[in-house]
Design a protein around this nucleic acid. Structure first.
Lengths: 228, 228
DNA sequence: GCAAAAGTGTTCGAGATACACCCATGA
DNA sequence: TCATGGGTGTATCTCGAACACTTTTGC
């Protein structure tokens, strides 16, 4: 026996290590951030990396990614989508390890207290201030960011960053943060109206010494619609 | 020893079988077709399936897909892109096998004589006349077709189906075949002009008892541009 | 001269863009 | 009363959609 294998390996059917790495995005202080883990073990001990882990022998790909997300953030039930599979022969010094990368979007109010993580140190880092990352994780983050920005144009994915109730200015700020450009308030709201994906709650939000803002909610929380 | 393994497996790092399945598209007789293989061995002996195979221990994912493509069609150097990774625990009766699916586009003039394939029977089948497929290959083809149709809207991917020189009517027919709808000739040509991705060769193509058509070529063969 | 596909412009409507002021509140 | 962000409508432009006739060839 060669330890626990999920498949019988032989000359025609080599066996591979399989991991999932998850790009966990959130918005903090008007910056798009990803969760990084400072690795406690080799390879790349002391280097920042994406949260990830080996897939269980009977675990679906999605379930593995959701497990990684829950382990590091305590969060579940949020947007989680397969990104790409990275499998260069030399990407992991331990041997042949293929990684199925996912990306997740976490509303900024669901991170008040993060689940404690044994041994590893974790941090939220702005995507435009990333340090050198372990493995090919830098490339993974770039691809995830690009996919996210592209989806802003043709889907309602940005709503996945919002708490249950939110103001239109907060939502606009999320768009501006991801796209890296300012948007016109009137055009933004007009376009939102055509999507018909949010509605007023009737409640107001008082935030300072100025006029209170209406609070909105998604009509169908948890769903991302393709638009236009 | 447990046969050839590309990674040391143990309790925390189970070993997986890894395959690539390739959705090879071409256009034949005004139909979008995929290449299918009639399986000669269990599992699913006698059932139609996508061409695919186990990944070599030192083979990159792209290289594995390109190898499958070359083995079945004799073609290389064509458009080939990762589609999605399928890894449900029960998708393969042999055990835990994860498949990284690719899709490829082959110009219709490069299939004159296909490479002989040992034992297996292969066939081009129109995507809207698919039989039941082995494993989850039906789902893979559906996803590939959807991706291809989506990319027509925002890229020049359709040109990857064209031979070196082609007429505008031929190209329009490719669009119509994939989208499953008729297009207006004048609007189609006007829009093409804005892409600035093809040019006249100066040559004409005589096809029958009617006016000859100008032959065009891609300005940058092999590249797919994102448009608008 | 006729059948058959190639080639070519203009009009119209919808949706995106640009743009400036009044409103409600807390200090 | 003033500073601050919340909220709203109109004019313009651009791009996609609809649409018909002339040209060149083979027979």
């Amino acid at each position: 026996m060669n330890g626990e294998t999920a498949v019988a390996a032989n000359r025609d059917r080599p066996a591979f290590g399989l991991t999932t790495d998850v790009v966990i995005f959130t918005i903090r202080e008007d910056a798009l951030c990803v969760l990084l883990v400072n690795r406690s073990r080799e390879p790349f001990a002391g280097v920042w990396a994406l949260p990830g882990g080996f897939l269980g022998p009977d675990e679906a790909l999605n379930d593995g990614a959701a497990r990684v997300l829950a382990e590091k953030t305590g969060v579940s039930g949020v947007f989680l989508e397969q990104l790409f599979t990275f499998g260069g022969p030399a990407r992991d010094p331990r041997g042949r390890v293929v990684s199925v990368a996912y990306y997740a979007l976490v509303p900024y109010n669901r991170l008040d207290r993060m689940a404690a993580v044994e041994g590893d140190r974790v941090a939220w880092v702005a995507v435009d201030e990333l340090p050198e990352l372990a493995f090919d994780h830098g490339e993974i983050v770039r691809m995830a960011h690009q996919r996210l920005a592209a989806k802003l144009d043709y889907s309602t994915i940005a709503l996945q960053f919002m708490p249950e109730r939110f103001t239109l200015s907060e939502l606009q700020s999320v768009y501006e943060t991801i796209l890296g450009e300012q948007l016109d308030k009137r055009n933004f709201r007009k376009r939102l109206r055509t999507f018909e994906c949010i509605e007023e709650t009737g409640e107001m939000f008082r935030a300072g010494k100025h006029r209170p803002a209406k609070l909105f909610r998604m009509k169908q929380p948890g769903t991302v619609e393709i638009i236009k």
